[in-house]
Design a protein around this nucleic acid. Structure first.
Length: 697
RNA sequence: GGAUCGUUAGCUCAGGGGUAGAGCACUGCAUUCACAUUGCAGGGGCCGUAGGUUCAAAUCCUACACGAUCCACCA
């Protein structure tokens, strides 16, 4: 054995030695254990978030496998609709092209090929972390059988009356060219000038003067004495496009203390105004003034064709000139909806979209939570999940992008009639151009991956045991899987949810490319080994709690890998010269040694079965280094503890450490097995490979 | 406006009613003897503040302060 553990020399070879004979397959255990891997974007390079989920899930999987359970970690990849199309369009832009240069089929094909070319990027990198997943069962969200299942789900939902098409104000990103669900809209505090405009006898405060051509009413609070006389009346006013008339209504959502206590109602360009409009059926149908291009349309008269911000500028100038601008509050701050993907301001636009009625699904999910059919690990996130479920609005599942599963709806030409079907119902029908939100397929992931795999997989492994992911996608993925899993099967899709925290830099700041403080997991693996990275991520981590981490942490754990290796080397060198002595020379110290060894094993086991992974890692770390190495091995050198005890101690610790640091423990296992199996008793203690060894009691 | 979480060593974080822990950083000593990617020794904490419960509080409860995050129809 070399005096230093060389991870580069072992990792790839050991991974093959596990995978080739099928060590990642479920095996013959009686009690099943299953985790569905969160499907990473098919072509996404590895980041530290992936490393975190692999580390934690692989620990759970290896632990359960060693306990002898029929263990399945089912992997897959996601087409990641908007994410992927966004990346692809950026690539097109570099070549001086845009998506509008291609027809739908060509564009889809191009993205498909692009994803194919990169499809192994994520998988190969996840393998480098040591993920012991059953790759023979891997699924991709656009595999034909998956698509087929997802379409069936939509049809079933439609039959059950949970799907509807409606004109609503949706969150539209002009830059990405698609609508989003409410969840994908971020809110940012921004300085936005507040303009006070003259509307006949009223002065109204607004941050969006450019939408005034879509004004449908003026609203005041019902108890506001200043304006009571106008309520119900139509007032005349001078505007940019000449004289106009507008109705005054009373609505209790108006805050009399804000601005002048009177507000313009622009239903097609503001969510709140849309809600007011819905409450007042006496109001006329509103006009839309901004189109999907982000430019003002013909309803804005001479301002049509201007982009929103430019239009605001020009219109404010004109209002000023006409004396219709009373004053401007330049220091006003408000919260603006922005696209989570590209950061552009979200434009609320009226569009016909497909919605999923969520109430019947959230009710069942809440029931499952209150019956404790699902347990959430992650400080406070159980309450957050509940809050989400109690307040969830209908889910807009339409996206105006091509990279995704096309909605199976067919419209009859020159008619509003439509048919929901997988195949075209006839020549006079054209298919809906929208695709599903990526999360629509992800929400069915535990069900669909098990149902389209080996014959008995679904029956054996559903409901799965744990779902594990970062808390940042709790509402996007976990909540929706819970809803859809129950809907499709009548049972929860998982019994436990483990939400890991986000990894920050060593100063506790968020990692971002622009800050340059990103830890690249592949660089860490190359430098210090996958084991070191995994252990650094996991040790003393707490579910739901963020953790700061730097290269020093990884280096420290690399030192630990080396410590493990050298403990094995110590035993090997010893037995090279003479057979290990099996006679117990000092019964009392040995007894104490065995006692602490078994206490350590049961403590680690207790922590792991309670999903206290960070604590389990810390326990085995401390006991191995500071007790087994620093004390016990030193005593063995002085023959105060027997060789047999030390050998058995090492065997136990390699097993306890294996889920956390699989490569170095497997390498060390191989070395001691190779070196010393003359002694029968020792040989029978060691199974062929550590990955399939039995967990210590 | 609502909610959730946090505040422990210089930094990053564990712990969670009974004498304060780890990694990194720091100081001193040790080098053919598994490992210098090491060992031994050490410095460094009124565990955010104020009350309460208790024989006993860093730990449980209440309030407050500060910080972070999420949600929200702040015109």
């Amino acid at each position: 054995m070399e005096s230093k553990y060389d991870h580069q020399k072992f990792e790839r070879e050991i991974y093959r030695k596990w995978e080739d004979p099928g060590a990642f397959k479920p095996g013959n255990g009686k009690k099943p254990f299953c985790i569905i891997m969160p499907p990473p974007n098919a072509n996404d390079p590895l980041h530290v978030g992936h490393a975190m989920f692999v580390a934690i899930e692989d620990i759970l999987i290896r632990y359960q496998r060693m306990l002898g359970r029929k263990t399945l970690w089912l992997p897959g990849t996601d087409h990641a609709g908007i994410e992927t199309q966004y990346v692809f369009e950026k690539k097109l832009a570099k070549e001086g092209k845009s998506r509008f240069d291609f027809d739908r089929e060509t564009l889809y094909k191009m993205i498909w090929n692009y994803v194919q070319d990169n499809s192994n990027v994520a998988i190969d990198q996840i393998k480098r972390l040591g993920a012991s997943a059953d790759w023979s069962r891997k699924k991709f969200t656009l595999d034909p059988e998956i698509v087929d299942f997802v379409l069936d789900t939509f049809i079933k939902l439609h039959q059950d009356g949970l799907i509807y098409r409606d004109l609503k104000l949706v969150n539209y990103c002009v830059k990405c060219g698609t609508a989003f669900s409410n969840l994908e809209v971020g809110h940012e505090e921004r300085k936005t000038p507040l303009y006070y405009l003259k509307y006949g006898p009223f002065t109204l405060a607004t941050v969006r003067p450019e939408t005034k051509f879509g004004d449908t009413a003026i609203a005041v609070h019902p108890d506001d004495k200043r304006y009571k006389k106008y309520v119900g009346q139509e007032i005349g006013a001078e505007g940019l496009l000449g004289k106009f008339k507008i109705k005054v209504i009373a609505d209790s959502s108006v805050d009399p203390k804000f601005g002048t206590g009177a507000v313009k109602v622009t239903p097609y360009h503001d969510h709140n105004d849309f809600a007011i409009w819905k409450r007042h059926p006496e109001l006329p149908k509103p006009a839309q003034v901004i189109g999907q291009s982000g430019k003002l349309n013909q309803n804005a008269g001479k301002y049509s064709g201007l982009r929103v911000m430019k239009a605001r500028e020009v219109i404010v100038e004109d209002l000023k000139r006409l004396g219709l601008l009373v004053k401007v509050d330049e220091n006003y701050h408000n919260s603006v909806g922005v696209c989570y993907r590209c950061g552009a301001v979200i434009e609320p636009l009226p569009m016909k979209q497909w919605f999923l009625r969520v109430k019947p699904l959230t009710e069942k999910a809440l029931e499952a939570l209150s019956k404790k059919q699902v347990r959430v690990y992650g400080s406070g996130h159980d309450k957050i999940l509940k809050h989400w479920l109690e307040n969830l609005e209908d889910w807009n599942i339409s996206r105006q992008i091509v990279w995704g599963i096309r909605i199976p709806v067919w419209y009859q030409k020159n008619s509003t009639e439509y048919v929901v079907a997988k195949e075209s119902p006839g020549k006079n029908f054209v298919q809906e151009t929208d695709t599903f939100d990526t999360w629509f397929s992800s929400s069915q992931w535990p069900v669909v991956t098990l149902k389209t795999n080996q014959p008995k997989d679904f029956e054996t492994f559903y409901p799965t045991d744990v779902t594990e992911t970062g808390y940042d996608i709790l509402p996007f993925w976990v909540m929706r899987m819970l809803m859809m899993g129950i809907y499709l099967t009548g049972e929860v899709p998982f019994k436990k949810v483990y939400l890991h925290g986000l990894i920050r830099d060593e100063k506790g700041q968020k990692m971002s490319k622009s800050k340059g403080n990103v830890i690249n997991p592949l660089v860490m693996i190359d430098k210090y080994g996958a084991d070191a990275l995994r252990m650094a991520l996991v040790i003393r981590s707490t579910p739901g709690q963020d953790k700061g981490m730097g290269e020093g942490d990884v280096r420290g754990m690399r030192n630990f890998s080396n410590k493990i290796w050298n403990a094995a080397r110590y035993i090997n060198l010893k037995s090279q010269n003479s057979n290990l002595k099996t006679t117990i020379q000092n019964p009392k110290p040995d007894r104490e040694f065995y006692k602490r060894l078994s206490q350590t094993a049961s403590l680690a086991t207790k922590h792991l079965s309670n999903y206290r992974i960070g604590l389990a890692a810390e326990t085995v770390y401390n006991e191995f280094w500071h007790w087994f190495c620093d004390e016990a091995i030193e005593k063995n050198k002085r023959q105060e503890i027997s060789d047999k005890a030390i050998f058995e101690g090492l065997v136990t610790f390699l097993k306890l450490l294996h889920p956390f640091m699989p490569f170095v423990t497997e390498a060390a296992w191989g070395e001691i097995k190779k070196q010393k199996t003359k002694n029968n008793e020792q040989r029978t203690m060691m199974e062929e490979m550590l990955i399939s060894a039995e967990w210590p009691k």
